[in-house]
């Protein structure tokens, strides 16, 4: 039994260092939000700077994950556990953001599928999935 506990000790130490890293006196406790902002801006950059439609959808996904992470970060209570009621536990994480994000993830994959279907359809119609080439084809058809 003790052996099993010892085997998990490095993992636990890693987790504790993560907690200290996120909330410790060295950082002002906002590091998680900054990572969220970086992720969000990366997704935003992919969406506006790339012409490939599949890449744009991947960028939207990155953006989406950053928003999810933002909600989950806000739900965290230090010293709390997962919101599954049990005896002898006083502090739980906030369950409400978890519910919202849980449904949002599944809806997100459904909308991603819809977007990819549109990409396939565009490819069938225009024979390309690059934004500028599609515009070129459109202008050609107009003249």
């Amino acid at each position: 039994m003790q052996g099993i506990v010892d085997a998990f000790a490095p993992l636990y130490a890693m987790w504790q260092s993560f907690e200290a890293f996120m909330a410790g006196p060295g950082s002002p406790g906002l590091l998680g939000y900054w990572i969220v902002v970086v992720l969000m801006m990366t997704g935003f950059y992919i969406v506006i700077a790339h012409d490939n439609l599949v890449k744009k959808i991947v960028g939207l996904n990155v953006f989406q994950v950053s928003v999810f992470l933002f909600y989950i970060l806000m739900a965290k209570v230090s010293g709390g556990t997962a919101p599954i009621l049990a005896d002898g536990i006083e502090k739980y994480a906030n369950p409400l953001p978890h519910v919202l994000i849980l449904t949002a993830i599944v809806v997100g994959v459904a909308t991603t599928a819809l977007g990819l279907a549109l990409v396939v359809r565009i490819r069938n119609a225009y024979d390309t999935i690059e934004d500028d080439e599609i515009q070129a084809v459109e202008e050609e058809e107009d003249t």
């Binding site: 997962a82 599954i84 849980l102 449904t103 993830i105 599944v106 994959v109």
Partner: peptide
């Protein structure tokens, strides 16, 4: 009802 899980995950 008792642990993590539910309709969304099960469906997926």
């Amino acid at each position: 009802d008792f642990g993590p899980g539910g309709g969304f995950q099960a469906g997926v």
